[in-house]
Design a protein around this nucleic acid. Sequence first.
DNA 1: AGGGTCCTAGATAGATCGCTCTAGCTGTTA
DNA 2: TAACAGCTAGAGCGATCTATCTAGGACCCT
Lengths: 204, 204
Amino acid sequence: MDPNLKPGNTKMRILDATAELFMRYGYTGTGLKQIVADANAPFGSLYHHFPGGKQELGVEVIHRSGAMYLELVTAVFDAAPDIVSGVHDCFDGAAEVLRATDYADACPIETVALEVASTNEPLRQATAEVFESWIEGAAERFRTAGIGDRTARELSISLIALLEGAFVLCRATRTTEALGAAGKTAAAAVEAALRHVAPESAQP
Amino acid sequence: MDPNLKPGNTKMRILDATAELFMRYGYTGTGLKQIVADANAPFGSLYHHFPGGKQELGVEVIHRSGAMYLELVTAVFDAAPDIVSGVHDCFDGAAEVLRATDYADACPIETVALEVASTNEPLRQATAEVFESWIEGAAERFRTAGIGDRTARELSISLIALLEGAFVLCRATRTTEALGAAGKTAAAAVEAALRHVAPESAQP
DNA sequence: AGGGTCCTAGATAGATCGCTCTAGCTGTTA
DNA sequence: TAACAGCTAGAGCGATCTATCTAGGACCCT
């Protein structure tokens, strides 16, 4: 028997299915019927596990997807020999995933973030918290490399903006050209910031 | 009598209303009922002017909004004394508009682009054409400043990615911090590209 | 005036939306 | 065995969605 179908895992299956659907079709573009169908879950279970309905499920999925994506990127960074190649690997890896999924899987919360920004305050806040966690996660890494507080934060924001913006362009054009160009610019920005680090504190 | 209400302008009012709604709430988040209500148009007129329904209206709005936004950015660029301040002015202006509209008005097609990328091929293609026109519009400007073909295109893509990515972060966090940081990075990238231009052909 | 075209006008169909409801199943306790 | 949670299961409600339909008004031409 499929271990994913055993009782008790329904909530997880719902969360996983919702995360994938949100990434590809967004919040308003994803119906609850489709979620339970993809999750092989009965409709009643959805409202048992998420009494707050679609919004509660959305908040939970945003936080979960945000944390998982941060872990993924962190792992890619940790595997790289230095920060600049870490940045390079992130953009390259994102391009590879995009190609492999027929330009469907990019940022797990970007579409949702734009959709709910002016319509659903709890969801908007959830996306804001995720982005802030990403920014600070990256900034801390740059600070330990000797980059100043302010520059580290601005650099982190710019890298995330480059990635998110490239995702939009790549999914629209069905090309990975934008991730290539953005990755170059991102690496150059990191190099420029590292050049201003005092040599004795630099950790390339 | 309100000139916008005189007969014959119904199509324009529908286009304008749809453009604004798409920018704020996206494609699936905008209902046809809301469009005709905002446009002060009868429902029947919508299907008279756009027999193809929501999709045909969407394609037309995407192209129209894309062209108008390109004109707007071009005007800002033309008003600036040099390219680097032009870039700076674009990001600053976008931040100002965002603040003035309670973080609602950012890129006119970004939300729609992400929503339709994996669900509606004609709309996806329309967004791709708009992005491509923006990229080439910017690249041509950089080429006339003496930047090489390949660098000009990569730079243009990176600037647009920075802008689009910053829009996501700003709307989610209800802050203009990201546009500030991205603007800095964008200006630095342009400066770096201009430094590699042979002095005799440079047009700062 | 009459005929024709363009556009306005809105009721309504059919599907789908998020959500609620009750009933039953399963596994753990007394 | 009996009682009780926790979860599964899906029918069905009202609202809303896109789209279609028919009817009538506005304006131009002969």
